[in-house]
């Protein structure tokens, strides 16, 4: 599975801020300014899962009782997308912030406070793979050891940007051999297998987005056609993407993943 450069889609009326984001994008991201909410929706539909979206939540909706409903529609249609709200934080916007959290915004950029290039880069990096991590948190059983959670979390981050086993080891500051040992001790599959599963879960997360077609999910995950994605989902979950989508792709795939984790736990059977 290959994932290209990470798109950074920006919908924000403040030209100075847009320019700052463009500079920050550098080589790591492909900057793309969009003029309105509908164009943003189109751009998100065609984007890989690693895409970041920066919006002004009040764009085209200034001061009319909270953030724009178009942002809500975007997050309903594409809940897997990492959306940043770039706004001025004032005391009268406390409720709006809570609303943005409920809608699924992954991070807030405080205009005129921490919207420096340094801070922006850091915030973008920190939100890598956040939607998938949030979904995994909900499905991992409470008895999952902390070490296992930390590795799964890191794997979700790595997969969201198209990384591989060596990137996972690097993100945990470990050698590949140590990572393998840690996976064994945490009763997890080996790193390669774990990452393969994370990719399946990522594809499943995208399949659950109502705004995406199976073909666009395949493209977003780096396959040239939907047959590649079908082959992989058949192998791991035993269903085609269309079937998965009908039965709740993430719920079904995560169930298979947890069954696999259960097998590893039984195999290890040791006291932590």
């Amino acid at each position: 599975m290959k994932i290209g450069a990470r798109p950074l889609l920006v919908l924000h009326g403040d030209e100075t801020f847009r320019e700052r984001v463009r500079k920050v994008a550098g080589r790591e991201y492909t900057f793309q300014a969009v003029p309105d909410w509908s164009s943003l929706e189109e751009a998100v539909r065609e984007s890989p899962p690693s895409a970041l979206v920066v919006v002004n939540p009040y764009e085209d909706h200034p001061g009319r009782g909270g953030p724009s409903p178009s942002l809500r529609s975007l997050l309903v249609e594409f809940p897997s997308t990492a959306v940043f709200a770039a706004m001025e934080i004032t005391p009268d916007r406390t409720e709006d912030l809570r609303t943005l959290g409920k809608w699924g915004v992954v991070q807030v950029i405080a205009i005129s406070h921490d919207d420096t290039p340094h801070a922006l880069v850091q915030r973008f990096r920190a939100s890598q793979g956040r939607p998938l991590k949030a979904l995994l948190e909900q499905v991992l059983p409470p008895e999952t050891p902390g070490r296992a959670r930390a590795i799964v979390d890191a794997a979700a981050e790595v997969v969201a940007v198209g990384g591989h086993g060596r990137d996972l080891a690097r993100s945990l500051h470990l050698s590949r051999r140590t990572l393998l040992r840690w996976c064994e001790r945490a009763e997890l599959p080996p790193p390669r297998k774990l990452l393969a599963w994370m990719r399946i879960l990522l594809a499943a997360e995208l399949l659950d987005d109502p705004g995406r077609t199976v073909l666009s999910v395949a493209h977003a995950c780096g396959y040239s056609s939907d047959s590649g994605l079908r082959r992989v989902t058949q192998k791991f979950v035993g269903s085609s993407p269309t079937e998965l989508r009908r039965r709740g792709a993430f719920a079904r795939s995560s169930k298979s993943f947890l069954e696999l984790m259960g097998k590893y736990r039984k195999g290890a059977g040791a006291i932590p």
Partner: peptide, 9 residues
């Protein structure tokens, strides 16, 4: 260590 709970952001 795990640095976030169930909070949105």
């Amino acid at each position: 260590a795990i640095t976030h709970g169930t909070e949105a952001f």
